[in-house]
């Protein structure tokens, strides 16, 4: 687990906030409102975007052309957020997203980045040994499949459009969205096969 913040860091944060409050720059209400709106963002949005793209060719084209606009279509505000690129997996190519420099992540559609995405091991190894990293998730790609690792940056964020698993014919958008996990949207996992999902 990531260690808790040191006691002196907690004190430093409260001292900084107190000084900013004293100058009328921030208030407790504003902090609470920001946190609440950040807490509301979740990978369910990204999952729904993928599910809709699997069902609706027009939406799929929009998603691949302009991810931010496709997110807005789901009612998510992308105002002030960097552009969102969407990487289309194919039978020949799998995509994996990392931010080697820090933790850039499409937070509007995936929520807070998990600790492991920000970890030194993931940041360094995703580009050096992507298959080894995927294996830690139990993700084994068919032999010969290319992996393209894409670096998210402060100015451009990425998510993956995975392939729709066989055996999901006739599924509704809700059913499809339920098998698209956060890990699948980053590329460390694949959407679960229906047999596994039903088990």
């Amino acid at each position: 687990m990531s260690p808790p913040a040191r006691r002196e860091s907690l004190a430093q944060l409260e001292a900084l906030i107190a000084a900013l409050k004293a100058k009328g720059i921030v208030s407790e209400e504003e902090l609470a409102a920001r946190q609440a709106s950040t807490d509301r963002a979740s990978p369910e949005t990204g999952a729904r975007m993928v599910a809709r793209a699997w069902l609706d060719p027009e939406y799929r084209a929009l998603l691949l052309r302009d991810g931010a606009q496709a997110a807005e279509r789901m009612g998510v505000s992308m105002a002030g957020a960097p552009p969102l690129g969407v990487l289309e997996d194919t039978a020949a190519r799998h995509h994996l997203v990392v931010c080697t420099l820090c933790s850039c992540y499409p937070r509007a559609v995936l929520g807070y980045p998990p600790h492991w995405y920000k970890s030194f091991a993931y940041r360094s190894r995703a580009v050096r040994d992507p298959r080894g990293v995927l294996a830690e998730w139990g993700t084994v790609l068919p032999e010969g499949m290319e992996i393209r690792v894409v670096d998210s940056t402060a100015d451009y964020r990425w998510m993956v459009l995975p392939m729709r698993p066989a055996g999901t014919e006739g599924w509704s958008e809700d059913q499809l969205a339920a098998i698209v996990t956060r890990d699948a949207l980053v590329g460390v996992a694949l959407p679960q096969q229906p047999a596994a999902a039903a088990a």
């Binding site: 080697t100 998990p114 492991w116 091991a121 940041r123 360094s124 830690e136």
Partner: peptide, 15 residues
């Protein structure tokens, strides 16, 4: 950190 050897053998802690 992309590709640095220091963490080459460190598993990703799935926190």
């Amino acid at each position: 950190m992309g590709g640095v050897p220091r963490f080459r053998c460190t598993p990703v802690e799935r926190d």
